[in-house]
Design a binder for these strands. Structure first.
Length: 349
DNA sequence: TCGTGTCAAGATCTT
DNA sequence: AAGATCTTGACACGA
C-alpha cells in the first residue's frame, strides 16, 4: 500500500516566495486614488500567483504531489471594496498556467477556506458571506481550468450554537441547497473541539461527502472511538472519487498547548499511526499540518526511511508493508476495552 | 533591523 | 453586554 505526503500553502525553502501577500483594508483605503489602489492590488496578486507556480515547480522537483493552495491568493477577494475588479480576467494567463501545470503533473491540490466560513450558521448574513467565500475558492479553481470536482475544499461542520443536534441539521439543510459547483467540491473534516470524527463520519455517510479525518483533532476530542474502528468507514466515504482518501496529521505543540501544531511531525506518533493504517491496508494521502511546512515533510520523510516495514519511493511517497492479522488483533483489544468516555492520549490509537 | 500590535471575517469562554 | 482568546502569516509602525 502506498502513502503520499503533502504540505500546506508555503515553502520555507525558497527565498521571497510567499503566495499569501496581503493588502489590508486600512492600507487599501490609505492609498491616494483608484490607480494606486489597483496598482497595489495587481502587484500583490501577480506576486502571489507567480510564487504559487514557483512552489508547484519546487514540489515537482522534490516529487511532492500533494499540496494545499493558500486561501489568500487574491487580496481582499471577497471584500465589497473590490467587487468591480475581475481578477480572473485580469490574470487569465497566470491562472491557466498554474492549472495546466497541476494537470500535466497530476498534482493533488486542495484548498481550505478558513474558520470564518460556516455553512451551519443561523445568521443569514454569515451564511451568505460563507457562500461568497466558497464561491471565491471555486472561482479560483475554475480560472485555473480545474473544473473537475476532484479538486476539493476542506471544511469543518461549524459552530455548536449550544445545540449540536440542530446545528448538524442546519448544516445538512444548508449543504444540500448549495449549487453543484460548490457542493460537489466540499469535503468535511473533524475539528479539535466540537464535532468529533464520529459526528462527521455520520454526516458524511448520510450526505455522501468524502471525509478527511484529522488524526490530531481526533486526539483532542473523541468519545473513546478507536482509529482502527473509524478508518475503514472514513476511507469508504471516498468511494467513486478520483483521488485516494486523505487524512490530516500534525503533532501537538506541547502537553500544555496540546491543540496547537508543533513545528515538526513526531516520528514516533506518525509510525504509530502507520501501524494502524497498515492494518487497514488501503492507499491514502497525508496532509501534514506542521508549522515548519515542507521542512517538516522532508524531515519526516528522512526519518521514515529508517522505520521498519516502510519503503521510501521518493521524498514524499512511501510503500507500507501490509500488516496482515493486525486488524483482528486491534479489534479484539477494542472489544476487551469497550467504548469508554476518554480523551487519554494513550487510547487514541 | 527588530519587536509588537493589527488585520475582512465568527464562536465561545470569561468577566 | 462587553472583552479576551482562539489561530495564522503577513504587514505596518515605531523604537
Amino acid at each position: 500500500m502506498k502513502i503520499r505526503l503533502g504540505y500546506v500553502a508555503m515553502t520555507l525553502n525558497l527565498e521571497k516566495c510567499s503566495p499569501s501577500g496581503t493588502v489590508t483594508v486600512a492600507n487599501f483605503k490609505k492609498l491616494p486614488d483608484e490607480e494606486a489602489r489597483m496598482y497595489r492590488l495587481r502587484k500583490i496578486t501577480r506576486e502571489n500567483l507567480s510564487n504559487t507556480l514557483r512552489i508547484l515547480r519546487y514540489n515537482k522537483a522534490l516529487n511532492i504531489s500533494v499540496y494545499r493552495f493558500t486561501s489568500k491568493l487574491i487580496p481582499l477577494a471577497t471584500h465589497p471594496l473590490i467587487e468591480h475588479w475581475d481578477y480572473r480576467e485580469d490574470f487569465k494567463e497566470e491562472f491557466s498556467e498554474i492549472g495546466k501545470f497541476v494537470k500535466e503533473n497530476d498534482f493533488r491540490v486542495s484548498a481550505h477556506p478558513d474558520h470564518y466560513t460556516l455553512i451551519n450558521s443561523h445568521s443569514d448574513k454569515v451564511l451568505e458571506e460563507s457562500i461568497k467565500d466558497l464561491d471565491y475558492h471555486v472561482k479560483i479553481y475554475e480560472a485555473m481550468g480545474l473544473e473537475d470536482y476532484r479538486y476539493k475544499l476542506v471544511l469543518h461542520v461549524g459552530g455548536l450554537y449550544k445545540d449540536k443536534k440542530t446545528s448538524i441539521e442546519r448544516f445538512k439543510e444548508n449543504f444540500v441547497k448549495l449549487p453543484d459547483r460548490i457542493r460537489k467540491r466540499i469535503i468535511l473534516e473533524n475539528d479539535d473541539k466540537s464535532y468529533t470524527a464520529a459526528d462527521v463520519l455520520e454526516i458524511c455517510k448520510e450526505l455522501k461527502i468524502p471525509m478527511v479525518i484529522d488524526i490530531h483533532h481526533h486526539r483532542c476530542v473523541n468519545h473513546g472511538e478507536s482509529l482502527l474502528s473509524l478508518l475503514p468507514e472514513v476511507f469508504d466515504t471516498w468511494k467513486g472519487e478520483y483521488f485516494k482518501p486523505k487524512i490530516h496529521f500534525s503533532s501537538p505543540k506541547s502537553e500544555k498547548d496540546f491543540r496547537s501544531h508543533a513545528d515538526f511531525i513526531d516520528i514516533g506518533e506518525f509510525a504509530g499511526f502507520l501501524e494502524i493504517a497498515g492494518a487497514i491496508g488501503r492507499d491514502f494521502d497525508v496532509m501534514l499540518e506542521a508549522k515548519s511546512k515542507d521542512s517538516a515533510l522532508l524531515q519526516l520523510s528522512n526519518e521514515l526511511k529508517n522505520v521498519k516495514g516502510i519503503r521510501s519511493i521518493n521524498e514524499s511517497e512511501f510503500e507500507l508493508e501490509r500488516k496482515e492479522g493486525r486488524k483482528e488483533a486491534y479489534a479484539a483489544r477494542e472489544r476487551e476495552e469497550g467504548t469508554q468516555e476518554s480523551t487519554d492520549s494513550s487510547t487514541w490509537l
